[in-house]
Design a protein around this nucleic acid. Structure first.
Length: 811
DNA sequence: CTAGACAGTCTTTTT
DNA sequence: GACTGTCTAG
């Protein structure tokens, strides 16, 4: 993250960074309630802050850190703060910086994964890795497993790559390895034997490739600490104050990591700690460095939504047992939402039985009612969302203060289609992530081929990209040659003439080898001198250029390839940005940073755009207006989780997380039919909807208004429906076009984008829209492909339309 | 070895 | 409906 560019704003009337007043942290307590104050100032071995949604937890956590520094209870370098996302880490760093100045620099504020990467970089040599190891994301792991499943013919036993991946991940989160699993498994079962083989081969391949997968990053650090107590002691001496946010979502491995770090130092005396001849920490005065570190955890068991990836809610519910004498502080006052929203949230979560009852409350008043809407299809629903956002916008709500949530990523498409047409600025968080695009993975694989030549997977990925005429046969030949000569796959490329392949292919291999060698020279000079900061970007550009990768894309006639070139330019820009922020950063550091970015990290601040994201991604965020969409059975709760133990409860917590993100306005919407798998199916309102007291919801169009089909009400779909005056105006029958029906709505949006690029429209023109009927153009704004028509439809009211793609014709 | 066509599988959420 | 893997023809 942007370590070097933390703005330095000192609030509180220019408090001296060094402190010096009698009560150095007095100003940190301004505006806090008694419980929050307690959470900031408590000093002791263990503190559990139970922080309900919107209870000011982030503020408390940052002030606690600032307070520890101000009162000199800790040096910056003695603090380890773990957050859930890199973005949260960046924000925390910034806010602490604002409170205490640039002394915040020495702290470790990061995610579990980033912290572990830092530790592993320093200690990798201890156990058979090098510091230039690569990190396999889930796609990389799956690719490797796919190969292994095939090799072992494990599919005959019903083992799929995805299935193996999730089992392995679960086991690793429990700190099991293939060996320990084999001891407990029924090895008479051939399927189990094969799985164990795949698992252990997988681990062997990772080691051979000098790589860790996501789960290893945590698990291997725990292993390291347990196997090498003197290494663990190094970190125990260093980190005297450990703080963990979102503790309810930690899994067993993460729990064990924290547990290891909070043990007393095992070895005697303060041995000088060195690692690979390198002094790793700046010396700091030792203060009580032998006892266990103090631990602060913050969490809310009602917001635990990651059990599916091993999060264990017991980590928080049993905290007091694990850390006897722990102080517990409860934060129940909510500073975020109106009472109506909180009442709905309380009512929903109250249906989870095995929870400690706690009720959020606020003193800001009831606020607006929750608005409900039922559409015929997901497009109808999306249109409601778009119209409603426009209305809010006209009332003065900034787009950036509006968010739309959904359960599954695939639901974003319908929303996106409508938003584009409505010329509504939006930003999708997550979805197909930038770093998961094929061209980006390719580019990164080129970098990995340079930074970690042991990583055969990366090489296999790029060996025929762009097409060089190297297929399976040639790859097999290289692989066999490497095995015979006892050299790596990478080194085999340097001996292309010895491979016994045709001259054309020989030349192609030699060329690739030369390009990789040249890039290596730039990024990792053999002389040992430090490469210039621009080396990564330059090397990347060289790789993409001389390998012919960009040229191949440019030569392609596929329109998508144009966008791919732009994405690659973007990646180069990211590398240059990285160089600015980390002048000493190497290609290895760059890759690590890139591999660990997450959905929620999308730094580009979404100012001026509506945010779209899954409810999982929404955790920890808040918005003035929130739309929770797709509130249907089989979606939330999701069909797959309905049958799993604890599934519905976790889904309920997820829904709870979604609705508690809203400050002032909450909208719940659903559709009667939803296209999934290319088929249209009937959707039922979610059970969670019934858990909200009816008087809290004002329905613009309730499920009862719509599900006339086959029901008692014989109302046709285009018959008059109840609703407030404005609702009737927008959604009454005369504005949903006559032709509207389930069948029509379902396929309303053509898959392909139409192009009215050259349509000339001016204020005063009459147009006809496929869905909204006839209307008059009020104004045209924007340029080129982004021209927007502001239209007042005769029946549907005012709308904004993106002229290029709107289904309109000029009359 | 590549390109194109077809069939089968799937999507829950993520560091 | 989108994507992957597999097959066939050049």
């Amino acid at each position: 993250m942007t370590d070097a560019s933390t703005p330095l704003i000192i609030v509180g009337g220019g408090a001296s960074p060094a402190g010096g007043s009698v009560r150095a942290d007095e100003d940190l307590l301004d505006g806090l309630n008694p419980q929050q104050r307690e959470a900031v100032v408590y000093r002791g071995p263990a503190l559990l802050i139970v922080a309900g949604a919107g209870s000011g937890k982030t503020s408390v956590l940052t002030r606690r850190v600032a307070s520890l520094l101000r009162t000199k209870d800790a040096w910056p370098s003695q603090i380890l703060a773990i957050t859930f996302t890199n973005k949260a880490a960046g924000e925390m760093r910034e806010r602490v910086g604002q409170l205490i100045g640039d002394r915040a620099q020495g702290m470790w504020i990061s995610t579990f994964h980033s912290a572990c990467v830092r530790i592993l970089r320093r200690e990798a040599q201890q156990f058979g890795f090098t510091k230039s190891f690569t990190i396999y994301d889930s796609g990389d792991s799956r690719a490797l497993l796919k190969r292994l499943v095939k090799e072992h013919e494990a599919d005959a036993y019903g083992i799929t790559p995805a299935g193996a991946q999730s089992r392995i991940s679960k086991l690793k989160n429990e700190l099991a390895d293939a060996e320990s699993y084999a001891r407990s498994a029924n090895m008479n079962d051939p399927a189990e034997r094969v799985f164990v083989d795949v698992f252990s081969d997988y681990q062997r391949e990772l080691q051979r490739a000098n790589a860790f997968d996501f789960d290893d990053l945590i698990g291997q650090v725990v292993y390291l600490f347990r196997a090498f107590p003197h290494v663990a002691d190094t970190y125990r001496r260093r980190f005297r104050h450990i703080l963990v946010d979102e503790y309810q979502d930690t899994n067993h491995a993460q729990y064990a990591l924290i547990h290891e770090l909070t043990q007393p130092v095992s070895g005697g005396g303060a041995a000088p700690f060195e690692s690979g001849g390198m002094m790793i920490f700046e010396p700091e005065p030792a203060t009580d460095a032998e006892g266990p570190a103090s631990l602060t955890v913050v969490g809310d068991s009602d917001q635990s939504i990651y059990a599916f990836r091993g999060a264990d809610i017991r980590n928080i519910t049993e905290f007091e047992r694990d850390y006897p004498g722990a102080k517990v502080v409860l934060l129940e006052q909510n500073y975020r939402s109106t009472q109506n929203i909180l009442s709905a949230a309380n009512a929903v979560i109250g249906n989870n039985f095995d929870r400690k009852d706690k009720k959020l409350w606020t003193d800001v008043g009831e606020g607006e009612k929750i608005i409900g809407f039922t559409g015929y299809s997901q497009h109808d629903e999306a249109q409601f969302v778009a119209d409603e956002i426009e209305k809010l916008h006209r009332e003065g709500v900034d787009y950036s203060q509006v968010a739309v949530f959904y359960r599954t990523n695939s639901q974003s498409r319908a929303l996106e289609e409508i938003f584009i047409r409505a010329a509504l600025p939006y930003k999708i968080m997550g979805g197909t992530k930038f770093y998961e695009r094929a061209e980006i993975k390719d580019a990164l694989a080129y970098l990995i081929a340079v930074s970690n030549p042991a990583d055969e997977m990366a090489l296999r990925r790029i060996i025929n990209r762009p097409r060089r005429g190297i297929g399976d046969v040639t790859i097999e030949a290289i692989s066999r040659y490497a095995a015979n000569e006892q050299i790596t796959f990478r080194d085999a490329l340097a001996n292309s003439s010895a491979l016994g392949v045709g001259p054309k292919i020989q030349a192609a291999i030699a060329h690739l080898d030369a390009v990789l060698a040249e890039a290596t020279e730039i990024m990792l000079p053999a002389t040992g001198e430090l490469p210039p900061p621009t080396a990564v970007a330059d090397g990347l550009q060289l790789l993409l250029g001389k390998s012919g990768y960009t040229d191949a894309l440019r030569a392609s006639k596929d329109a998508q390839d144009e966008a791919r070139v732009e994405n690659l330019d973007e990646l180069v820009a990211v590398a240059r940005e990285f160089a600015r922020n980390n002048p000493e950063g190497t290609v290895v550091d760059f890759l690590a940073e890139v591999q660990l970015v997450s959905d929620a990290d999308d730094l580009e601040d979404a100012s001026g755009s509506v945010s779209l994201m899954t409810m999982h991604t929404a955790k920890g965020l808040e918005y003035d207006a929130v739309f929770v969409t797709g509130v249907e059975e089989d979606l939330i709760p999701h069909r797959i989780s309905a049958g799993e133990p604890g599934g519905p409860q976790e889904e309920r917590r997820l829904f709870y997380v979604g609705i508690t993100r809203a400050r002032k306005r909450l909208h719940l919407s659903l559709a009667m039919t939803r296209a999934q798998f290319g088929e249209i199916s009937v959707a039922m309102p979610s059970r969670f909807l019934q858990e909200i007291p009816a008087e809290l919801i004002q329905w613009r169009q309730s499920p009862g208004d719509v599900n006339s089909r086959g029901g008692m009400q014989s109302r046709a779909l285009n018959a008059r429906r109840p609703g407030g005056p404005s609702a009737a105006k927008r959604y009454g029958d005369d504005l949903v076009p006559k032709s509207t029906s389930i069948e029509r709505f379902a396929n309303r949006i053509p898959a392909k984008v139409r192009d009215n690029g050259d349509m000339q429209l001016a204020s005063g023109d009459r147009i006809r829209h496929d869905d909204f009927g006839e209307g008059r153009v009020d104004a045209v704004t924007g340029e080129g492909a982004k021209r927007v028509a502001h239209v007042r439809f005769d029946s549907a009211g005012p709308k904004k339309l993106l002229i290029k793609i709107a289904p309109i014709e000029k009359l």
